Each structure stands twice: as C-alpha cells, then as structure tokens.
Simulated scan of single mutants.
Amino acid sequence: MYIVDLFTLKKITKKMRIAIEAQRIFRKNKHGMDFVALETIKELQKLDTANEYFIITARGEDCDIINETLNFKIITINCPFYPFWEQIALPFLLWKIKPDLLHCTSNTGPVAYRQKMVVTLHDVIFLEKRSAPKKSIYQAFGWYYRKFIVPFVLKNCAKIITVSDYEANRINEVTGIDNKMITTVYNGLSKHFIRRENPWSISGLYIPDKDFIFFLGNTDPKKNTDNVLRAYAEYVSSATENPLPLLIADLKREIVDSILMKNNLSHIINLVYTPGYISNNHLPYIYSAAKIFLYPSLRESFGIPILESMACGTPVITSKRSAMPEIAGENAILINPDDHYTIAGEIRKLLIDRDYYASKVEYGLKRAKYFSWESTAERLKSIYESM
C-alpha cells in the first residue's frame, strides 16, 4: 500500500513559468556572456519540454539563431538605452507575464523587482580596485552601471549563480554574501569547437600566413595586451628563424599601433595583424590554424577561449591567477602574466620542443571534454526546479 502526500505531489509536478533575461543574444558581434546565455538556452530547449519559458531579448540583426518551440516563447523588447530596457521595460513585461522565476543572465537585473529572481554573476571585477581605467566609453559606462546596480540587485536575489569556484569565493569576499546563497555552474564548450582540417581556407581571410600565434584581446586592461605585445616582441628578437606573425582579434589597428608606439615596439608592427572582430563560426578554424594561443589575462572568472583552443588542438599559454588554473587544469601552461619574458620563453619552448608541444595538445584535447553546455543546462534546470 502506497501513501501519497498530495501537496508534495502537486509541488513536484507543477509546471513552472520561467523568464530568462537574455538581452544581448541577438546582437551581431556577440561576446562571452552573450554566448553563455545563448548556448545554455539552446540546451534547455532540448532538455526541458515540461516547464514554460519566456526568453526576453532586445532586438538585433541575429534574430534567427534561436527559434520558438512549444514551451519556449521569445519576446523582444524595443528599448534602445540599456538601463531603461532593464529597469523600466523589463519589469513592465514581467508584470504582464507573471513568471514564477526570473533568471537574469549577465550580472545585473531590475532593482525594483520583488518576485523570485536568480542572477548569474559572472564576476565582481567592477567591485574590485581597477588596475587601469577603461579605454572605451562603452566599457567605462558599463563598469559604473554595474558597480551601482549590482549591490541592490543581489539583496533581492533568491540565488546567485556564478561560473567558477574561484569567483564564488570572490563574491563572498567582496560582498559578504553567505556562500550558501552562491552556486557554481560551469560554462560549457560549444560542439563546433573541434580540430578543423584545412583551416587555412578560413584563417586566410584574416592573415596570409599558414602558421601564426593567436591572441584574443580587447580594450579591457585585464586582457593584458601591453604585456602580450612585449612578450611577442621578446620572442621575435630571439627567434633564430623567421618569427611567426601575431594575429590579434577584437582590437582596432590604431589601438594596437598606439600600444606598440608607447612601448617602443614599432619594429614589430608589420608582423601584427588586426582584422577586428572574428565571428564565432570562424574561430574554430583560427584556433586550428594557429600554432599557439595566448591567453595570459590578469583576471578571469572562467576563460571559455582556453577550452575552445584546447578542443581545437592548439596549446594555450594562460595565467596562474584567478579562475584560469581551475579551468585550464594543473597540467596546463600556467605563467605569471606580469612576466613577459616567461611568456616569450613558453612560446619558444613550444615551437622548439616537439614532444612538449605534443603533450600540451594531447592534454588540452582531454581537458576540454570535461565541459559541455548540456551539463550547464542540467544544473540550471535543477536549480530552477529546486526554488
């Protein structure tokens, strides 16, 4: 004879109405947090056919990357100024659809919202002391906006999700929020990041050389661009054969040239290629063609590019700081990002020592397999249903 608690049964089987704020997933030139939200939503669509989802976005050119399904409705809000979009238009929409749970995916959220809310706090860099001022107005505004908004939002959260154990500890240290409120959900790795045969058909669109060194930079000081260029110049100066050129994504030519001039490195200008933004579907070919990927950041909460490069069979030189050792693993090439001589030395070692190079390729391919968006989506679904 089975005795069933009808209240418990009702609670377990109740279909949830879940709103996911994914404001930037339709923009053309997506970056880290945009891809995290997009890939997670795609996997949730495959995984969860029971709960009802409302994916809330802003309008954008790339609106065909995800489609509605029976239980996934996409709602776009047309509001050009992001603070108004988040603090006025989003709460008004939420008042209309009345979700059981709101998940804000990119650090911030509506301050005045008082219903059940989860926030993915990717990092608390904006609450830490800045190593250098932001070089773009857009980044500076975003930094101040988050610094002002996030402390208020966190007070209203039922749960805080972050992307590494390192960052979970930093959130606790910086905000004083109890660790029990903070949950780590690792980012995943998209399946199209695999070793590509004949990658030069795509990499040739960005750099004429078949062999090159790759660096993903931007104007954020944490990307350590100045020291990367110093390290590359040091490698060039000691190269016994023709040095490999350096391909830099996401940085304009004039910014790179100004850094080179400031550091008296103008002699390497002709070896540095700066095509600007490289689309996500082209990146696997770039990683596959590159001999080495440089990622010696000063501060990262996760570091998806580390795994992308590893999955494409290209060794990564990254930092032994913040979350990078946690994600790259103990057998990765972990260096002091302040020491450009060490970075240059690792470049030389990889290019000279074939056994060392092969061991790092093999290690990276194995390490990348530990991360998937399916696992990320499963963890999120579990969190949603536990609330």
Rank of each mutant, 00 (worst) to 15 (best):
K73P: 07
L9C: 09
I383E: 12
I177P: 06
R114E: 14
Y370M: 07
L298A: 00
K366G: 07
L244D: 01
Y356R: 03
Y357C: 08
F84G: 00
T162R: 07
G109W: 10
P133E: 06
K134L: 05
V228K: 02
L47G: 12
G345L: 02
I125F: 10
R17L: 11
I55Y: 01
L251W: 01
K210A: 07
L260E: 09
I56V: 15
P284H: 13
G60M: 06
Q139P: 00
T13N: 12
W85A: 05
H192Y: 15
L205S: 14
P243K: 10
I18L: 02
C63Y: 15
F7E: 14
F92H: 11
Y53L: 08
D100H: 13
G364Y: 08
E300F: 08
I171E: 00
I41R: 05
K30Y: 04
Q139Y: 12
S237I: 00
S309H: 06
M261T: 13
A311H: 03
Y295E: 01
D209H: 14
I268F: 03
R354M: 11
F302H: 05
K116L: 08
I383M: 10
L265T: 11
S297C: 04
P221Q: 13
I327W: 01
R367Q: 15
I306K: 02
D339A: 03
A368K: 04
L216W: 05
D123R: 00
K159Y: 02
K73S: 13
M387P: 00
Y370W: 06
Y113W: 15
I383P: 05
E86L: 11
A132L: 07
L101K: 01
H103I: 06
T183G: 00
D62E: 14
N51D: 15
W143D: 15
L189A: 04
R348F: 00
S201E: 15
F141S: 07
K381C: 14
D64T: 13
L205I: 13
V4N: 04
I3F: 09
E362L: 09
D34M: 12
I20L: 04
I12L: 14
I292E: 06
T274P: 08
F212A: 05
I259H: 13
V316R: 01
T318E: 03
T184I: 03
P199Y: 10
G329L: 12
D5S: 11
E254P: 00
R354K: 15
N280Q: 13
N187R: 09
D353P: 11
S136V: 05
L90G: 06
